[in-house]
């Protein structure tokens, strides 16, 4: 009979879900938007997404493992998520060096400088985008029309985004046949990914629900109760992509149920404030980054009443 028994604290059985299985699930959830980006923006999309994802993985591996062995570069999948997310919020004409710089800022400055996975306060991909936007505003706002499907190898032709132009057909918005950042244009693709994450239990409906709901109410109030305007505000720009994939980042969102709802509402308020009152056409990046900073405060003031706690 063996006598070398292992001992350790209870519980002695654990769920099979791990940090890396969650991260790769997020990558799976990003497949539809990645596909949409490639369909609408062609080879530019392929190169930008490849470069942003790979460079993020390489930066992370160099800093964390000091190694470039394939297994280390794959890591826990979190760098792949950050790099892919960053690529998906770049404009289709972004030069490849910008994808590298963005990923570098995201991984090195926003994530590792704060202590690595779990310790960053701000969403790394959004910090990457914000830094690029402030540094090269012209390159970051050169928008293009999607490619015609029968002329997929053609060069991109410049054109305004729906938010910039102030209009677009709803069908085009839903399918994604409009100008914009690589991954933000197709409502259908974003929803597919979001549903997958909801079913897997990786995101809580309260964040996208609070975000989109608040934006819808403000759009209704500021547009003479026009439902068309509401649909436009939600489907155009980066709101839906941000609500589903960015605001729901576990590390940078609250851990209480009430907190998650408040966080979503706050994102909606700031986004719509920027869109309606500020000079910029879009405010998703700054809204989520601003709310990221409030997360510790939100957690602190939304601790749930524990089981059996008597109302005071």
């Amino acid at each position: 009979m063996t006598e070398k028994l292992k001992v350790g604290p209870s519980p002695h059985i654990l769920d099979s879900r791990s940090v890396s299985s969650i991260m790769w699930d997020v990558v799976i959830a990003l497949i539809p938007v990645t596909a949409a980006a490639i369909i609408y923006f062609g080879l530019n999309a392929v190169f930008i997404l490849l470069v942003s994802t790979l460079s993020a993985m390489i930066f992370e591996s160099l800093v964390v493992h000091k190694s470039l062995k394939p297994k280390k570069v794959l890591g826990d999948g979190s760098a792949a998520v950050t790099g892919l997310l960053l690529g998906l919020i770049l404009p289709p004409s972004a030069p490849l060096w910008m994808a590298v710089v963005g990923s570098g800022v995201a991984i090195l400055l926003a994530k590792q400088a704060f202590g690595g996975i779990g310790n960053n306060i701000f969403n790394p991909a959004l910090v990457g985008r914000a830094v690029l936007f402030m540094s090269w505003p012209v390159l970051m706002t050169r928008w293009h029309q999607p490619l015609a499907l029968d002329n997929w190898f053609a060069d991109l032709v410049s054109g305004a985004t729906p938010l910039g132009a102030g209009s677009a057909s709803l069908i085009d918005l839903v399918l994604g046949n409009v100008g914009g950042s690589l991954g933000e244009t197709s409502v259908v693709a974003i929803l597919l990914g979001g549903i997958y994450l909801l079913l897997k239990g990786h995101i809580d409906w309260r964040i996208p629900g609070g975000y989109i709901g608040t934006a819808a109410i403000i759009a209704l109030l500021t547009n003479q109760f026009s439902l068309e305007a509401v649909a436009f505000h939600i489907c155009a720009g980066g709101l839906l992509f941000g609500a589903v994939f960015m605001a729901t980042d576990m590390v940078t969102s609250p851990t209480t149920k009430v907190g998650r709802l408040l966080f979503g509402i706050g994102c909606g308020l700031v986004t719509m404030y920027v869109r309606v009152f500020a000079s910029a056409p879009e405010g998703v990046t700054y809204a989520i980054l601003f709310m990221n900073a409030l997360v510790p405060l939100i957690d602190r003031y939304t601790v749930p009443k524990t089981f059996g706690e008597v109302k005071k």
């Binding site: 292992k6 350790g8 826990d76 996975i117 779990g118 940078t252 851990t255 149920k257 524990t306």
Partner: peptide, 27 residues
């Protein structure tokens, strides 16, 4: 049955908060 794993950093997923039958914040 009792796979032993390396402890990693909390990623604030809040699964523990949702699972707690005493409505505590285990994280």
């Amino acid at each position: 049955e009792v796979r032993i794993y390396e402890e990693r950093t909390c990623i604030r997923c809040a699964r523990c908060v949702d699972a707690c039958p005493m409505r505590l914040m285990p994280n």
